[in-house]
Simulated assay, not measured.
Amino acid sequence: MTSVQEQVEQFLFHEVALLDHRDWDTWLELYADDATYSIPQGDPDHARKVSIVFDDKRRLVERVIRLKSGFAYSQEPSSITVHLVGNVMVVKADEASIQVASSLMVTEVRRGRQTVYAALVSHTLRPSGDSFLIAGKEIRLANSEVPLGNLTFIV
């Protein structure tokens, strides 16, 4: 029998594998209808500060549609990404949700240039059948306060 820790780790590994394989439709299915996905710039006060990304599920669907359409000119050619998730910790768990903290390294290769992003990530997961749905994901980039260039792929 696998522990909640192991289930959460496997879920997070699955999520980033979907992104690296550009299986965005399956990736979207991991998100609850009321989910939020954010990349704050510095302090994550979305009411008072500008965020790099602050999306709901509808906006995530729009991003995926644009990436798949061929009209995402900022992704021509498409980025090749490799996500590495580590230091996964279940911070709090109850019947309704699980709070998870992890570290993330994303390597992006595009137009002969390699860029590495490092982040601390918080997930709020809801149990759903034998898996989870993502109710919230916040990506705190280590370098969010400096110019980031073309961050148009999905972190």
Rank of each mutant, 00 (worst) to 15 (best):
F13N: 15
F13S: 14
F13K: 15
H14G: 02
E15F: 09
E15L: 05
E15S: 05
E15C: 08
V16G: 02
V16K: 08
A17M: 07
A17S: 13
L19I: 05
L19E: 05
L19H: 03
D20W: 08
H21S: 13
R22H: 14
W24N: 05
T26C: 06
T26S: 11
T26K: 12
W27R: 03
W27T: 03
E29W: 02
E29Y: 01
L30I: 06
Y31L: 04
D33F: 06
D33N: 10
D34M: 06
D34P: 04
Y37T: 07
S38V: 06
S38W: 06
P40T: 07
Q41C: 12
Q41F: 02
Q41I: 12
G42H: 11
D43K: 13
D43I: 15
D43P: 04
P44Q: 01
D45N: 15
H46W: 06
H46F: 10
K49R: 14
S51I: 01
V53I: 14
V53E: 00
V53S: 00
V53H: 00
F54I: 01
F54N: 15
D55Y: 05
D55Q: 10
K57Y: 13
K57L: 07
R58I: 08
R58F: 10
R59W: 04
R59F: 04
R59V: 11
V61E: 15
V61Y: 11
V61L: 11
E62K: 08
R63D: 04
